[in-house]
């Protein structure tokens, strides 16, 4: 299991976490990967394979913690995360590469 952590301390380990994206804020659970939850909120994220091998859904993880239930095949740049297969484990802030 891969864990990405940042220096920001964990908030209360709730099952619901806040995801900050620019001025937007959405609530997500640990039940599903981030990508589907962003889509449900109407936020468009690039995707292709949706199972961790193509890296199309790579987005910036500015701070916070995510976990991968299985190690993705794609290379994950440091400071980035794969939205399609990452489970959000704390409040996080994300950004698209173009921002």
């Amino acid at each position: 299991m891969t864990t990405l952590t940042s220096n920001k301390p964990d908030k209360i380990r709730d099952k619901v976490h806040r995801v900050l994206l620019g001025k937007k804020q959405i609530l997500v659970t640990e039940d599903e990967p981030l990508l589907v939850q962003l889509e449900r909120e109407g936020i468009h994220v690039e995707y292709q394979c949706r199972e961790g091998y193509c890296s199309s859904c790579s987005i910036k993880l500015l701070w916070g913690q995510v976990e991968y239930p299985f190690e993705p095949l794609a290379w994950v740049q440091s400071g980035y995360m794969l939205a399609c297969c990452a489970i959000v484990k704390s409040d996080i802030e994300i950004a698209f590469f173009s921002d």
């Binding site: 690039e46 995707y47 292709q48 394979c49 949706r50 199972e51 193509c54 199309s56």
Partner: peptide, 8 residues
Amino acid sequence: INAWLVSD
């Protein structure tokens, strides 16, 4: 294009 590229 994503809907066409998606493999699942």
